[in-house]
């Protein structure tokens, strides 16, 4: 098969334009099913007298948000950011640092996290978007690492040891989020809301132009679009969404550390998105769920669980080129 050295730089197939409507409908159904199932988790936890399920799944939903935001630029703009975990960190540190100074309201946390994420995304995105492909991957890594090392040097906020929160964020003066199931539904709500937002973005004229720049930036330029602006806007939106997941992660773990921003984490997010199926939005969500559940499940059997995870990744690539989402679409007979 390696006898056919055809250029392979084209990004993996995306839904072709004419197919969009019916496909989207089926995706909507899939999304409804997934989110609906998720909504039952606290109920199952209650019935099985296992409240921990709710806590564990909150973390999974948090990563699903981060992966969803990455898929927005990775899947639809072919912008493989290897520094995406930095934005999760901004949100988490907004909670930690503001709480340290007595400001515990989640809306302030969100505003601060999003604000920092937007500024950082605009500044670094403007430089990074001058590059393409692997160069883009590596320059985003560079900026992510700079953010990481900045936070490890903040001794006042724990340096690399991280910082333990005294409690969760408050909502308009109430400690509503202290209840695990409330935090769970807030996180689920954020996931659904951001999923709808992302879906609206990719289906808007903006989203189509963005997808167009991925396919052929030159042609888009020729017909009068400046890809740079669209890509930068998408980059900023994705960063802001990731910072929201960071605020929720800080609340879930009640602990914040620079480890949240390391390149390993950025790599994990990329793995989640590709595994789930890029350019499907739901793929990122599914990827996060699968990777984290797999990790939990495999680590039960052996400390060498990474070997099992590696095996799964290779098998998925070899036998289901479009990730898990592709697998499902094929199983349901909708894929080509």
């Amino acid at each position: 098969m390696s006898d056919s050295p055809a250029p392979t730089t084209a990004p993996p197939a995306s839904p072709a334009a004419p197919l969009r409507r019916p496909r989207l409908f089926s995706r909507g159904a899939a999304a409804l099913a997934i989110f609906g199932l998720m909504a039952l988790v606290p109920l199952v936890a209650h019935l099985s007298d296992d409240p921990f399920l709710t806590v564990a799944f909150t973390r999974i939903l948090v990563f699903a948000i981060a992966a969803l935001s990455l898929d927005l630029i990775l899947g639809y703009g072919a912008l493989v950011s290897f520094g995406h975990a930095a934005y999760v960190g901004f949100g988490a540190y907004a909670v930690a640092i503001l709480s340290r100074h007595g400001i515990t309201d989640i809306f302030v946390h969100l505003a601060a996290g999003i604000g920092v994420a937007v500024i950082f995304a605009v500044l670094t995105g403007a430089i990074a978007l001058r590059t393409r492909g692997v160069y883009f991957i590596m320059i985003t890594l560079a900026f992510g690492q700079m953010a990481y090392f900045f936070f490890t040097s903040l001794s006042a906020y724990g340096g690399d040891d991280g910082i333990s929160l005294r409690g969760r964020s408050t909502v308009l003066g109430t400690d509503l989020l202290a209840h695990n199931s409330v935090l769970f539904y807030v996180t689920l709500g954020a996931l659904v809301g951001l999923y709808l937002l992302a879906a609206a973005v990719v289906n808007s004229r903006f989203g189509r132009v963005l997808a167009g720049t991925r396919e052929d930036a030159l042609r888009m330029q020729a017909i009068g679009f400046r890809p740079f602006r669209y890509q930068l806007a998408a980059f900023v939106i994705a960063g802001a969404m990731a910072s929201i997941s960071g605020v929720l992660l800080a609340n879930q773990a009640e602990f914040v550390s620079p480890a949240y921003m390391s390149w390993h984490r950025s790599g994990e997010l990329i793995v989640m998105v590709i595994l789930g199926g890029i350019g499907t939005l739901l793929g990122g969500v599914v990827g996060a769920v699968v990777v984290l559940l797999l990790e939990e499940w495999l680590s039960v059997f052996t400390t060498h669980w990474r070997m099992g995870l590696g095996l799964v990744l290779i098998l998925v690539v070899l036998f289901s080129p479009k990730g898990i989402a592709g697998l499902f679409e094929r199983l349901l007979g909708r894929g080509k």
């Binding site: 392979t8 990775l74 793995v271 590709i274 060498h304 990744l313 290779i314 690539v317 080129p321």
Partner: peptide
């Protein structure tokens, strides 16, 4: 392994070789 990946997208290559890295390291 790699032979089967040459005509695949960069992202598939990243995922598969990342998996391989985990396996060999373990």
């Amino acid at each position: 392994l790699f032979r089967r990946l040459y005509d695949r997208s960069h992202l598939d290559q990243v995922l598969a070789t990342f998996g391989l890295m985990l396996i060999v390291t373990e």
